[in-house]
């Protein structure tokens, strides 16, 4: 019983800490997008910004990592409260969702980073 409470507490904390990281990332992201959309979006424009740029690589890696922690824990809570699905199943689904985001995200970022125009 206690172990469940302990793991739930760490999940909650991870949720909150990733939220704080995301607060910064999201503000930067929205600002970037407002600027980028104004300049005109295209494959070339996106890869021009990111390819070979360690700063953007670092930023987006952090961003994706934080999302892959934050979103699944949130989804887990919603599923536990809004559905009758068993706890273990929900935990598994949430973890898979997290891995999914991580893989998709890193694929995109590292791909863009490595692209030459």
């Amino acid at each position: 019983m206690e172990n469940v409470a302990r793991s739930e507490t760490w999940l909650w904390l991870a949720q909150r800490v990733s939220a704080m990281v995301l607060a910064v990332c999201v503000i930067v992201h929205i600002a970037t997008m407002i600027y980028a959309v104004q300049q005109g979006l295209s494959t070339a424009a996106i890869s021009a910004r990111i390819s070979g740029n360690l700063m953007w690589l670092g930023f987006y890696t952090t961003f994706v990592a934080a999302v892959s922690i934050h979103a699944p824990i949130g989804v887990r809570t919603v599923l536990l409260e809004a559905t009758e699905l068993p706890q273990k199943r929900v935990g598994l689904l949430a973890m898979l969702f997290g891995l999914f985001i991580l893989v998709l995200g890193f694929r995109a970022i590292f791909g863009l980073y490595g692209m030459s125009l």
Binding site: E2, A5, R6, E8, T9
Partner: peptide, 11 residues
């Protein structure tokens, strides 16, 4: 604190 921790508690 152990009693009120977790999703069925304060979280």
């Amino acid at each position: 604190i152990r009693a009120i921790a977790g999703d069925d508690g304060c979280l």
